[in-house]
Amino acid sequence: MVTAVTEVKAKSPTLVSKLDDVDLKARTLDFTPSVMNSVQKKYFYLWLILPAVVVLAAISLYPFFWLIWMSLNDVGINTSSAFVGLKNFTRLLGDDKFWNGWQILLTYSALCLVFEIIIGVFIAVVINGTRFENILVTIFLMPMMMAPAIAGLIWYFLFNSTFGWYHWFLHSIGILGDTSIIGSTDTALFGLVIVDIWQWTPLITLITLAGMKRVPRDQLEANMVDGANAFSNFIQITLPNIYPFLLIGIMLRFMDNFRFIDVILALTGGGPADSTNILPVYLFEVSFRYFKLGRGAAIALTLLVVTIILGKILVRVFEGPASKRIDVGN
């Protein structure tokens, strides 16, 4: 044993101090057991988790119970409230704007996703592995860094029918008339979709690129040898491999369309004639324009229930193959 230690010491000088240390501890019997008392161990971790859980409980769980209480009351601008039972909910059943809000939310999300997936994946496929990949991605992701509220204002300027360059362009090529794209009930939703595409397509590109790095090269090559061309290679090999990544992108963008309404508030505020009044915008209007906080709470609860269901699906998707780190040299 001693000879072995001296041998190692001679071979690797960096180990010397460590081994001396062990030597000393073994001799003085001052050895801390590596497996601590398991109760003590549990308490240590509990104390680490506790602060975060307490803070989260205060700012998320407590408000959640408040929300339920509010939905059962008539809460207005002042602090007074009256218990109304389920009236806030039964009113929603006959509320056209509520159902309209859901419908537009789904249409809006679906439109955004279709375009973002097609464009985002296409870009990822054509730039993957080229010399320009890094610089192009860096430029492409610039819109994502912009505050959505600011992006909304910029696009409000660009879409303006008297001085907006984008309106001028669309007018010049004959797609639009004198009315701005966000000024007509037929086109306003597309105006919002355009902004969403501008800002968030790069996220799909980024996710797809991450997925494409994991596509096994030997499979692609074997398929090529079998006579497949680039297109069928994409359909047969690449697409199944990046599918879990795309699923994550789809879920994330879908949830974000529920979460953020900054762009819509800046561009249309839900108008014209409720054509862009997606449910979160309607909720904002009820709660903070008319200050019907009780009714707002009822709408918020329906939105939360759907989000939680989506979240359950999302977590399952998250734990899928895309999150596994694969250490193959690529």
Binding site: P63, L67, R259, I261, P280, S287, F288, A300, T307
Partner: peptide, 8 residues
Amino acid sequence: PVVAVLVP
């Protein structure tokens, strides 16, 4: 959703 959190 941010608005849903915002109400309570």
